[in-house]
Simulated scan of single mutants.
Amino acid sequence: MGKYSWLWVGLGNPGPKYRYTRHNFGFLVLDFFAQKKGLSFAPGPFQSEICPYKDVLLVKPQTFMNLSGEAVSPWVRKLYLKPEQVLVIHDDLDLPLGRIKFVPKGGAGGHRGVKSIIDALGTKDFPRLKLGIGRPAPGQEVKDYVLERFSTDEWPTVESILEKTSEALDFLLENGLLKTMSIYNRA
Rank of each mutant, 00 (worst) to 15 (best):
D144E: 14
V158L: 12
V88L: 10
E49L: 15
T180S: 14
I50C: 08
Y80G: 12
L87I: 03
D170F: 12
A42E: 14
I50K: 05
G113L: 03
K124M: 10
P156Q: 13
F27Q: 03
V114L: 04
D55K: 13
K115D: 07
D119H: 08
F150S: 12
D153L: 15
L81Y: 04
L39M: 06
I118F: 01
P136K: 02
T123I: 02
G12K: 07
K143A: 11
P156A: 13
H111W: 07
D119C: 01
R128M: 05
R186I: 14
Y53P: 02
G109T: 08
T123Q: 03
G38F: 10
W155S: 06
T21P: 08
T152S: 14
R77D: 07
S151K: 14
K124S: 09
L162F: 13
C51M: 04
E159A: 13
G107N: 04
V9N: 00
K82V: 02
F41W: 03
R22G: 09
C51Q: 05
E148S: 14
L162D: 11
V103C: 04
A34I: 12
M1I: 09
I118S: 02
T157A: 10
F33I: 11
L178N: 15
L178M: 14
Q47L: 11
S166C: 14
L30W: 10
K115F: 03
Y20A: 11
G98L: 11
F27H: 05
V72A: 01
V114W: 03
G26L: 06
P14D: 04
A120H: 01
G139A: 04
D119A: 13
E159F: 14
G122N: 01
E159W: 13
L173R: 14
G109P: 01
R128I: 00
M65N: 01
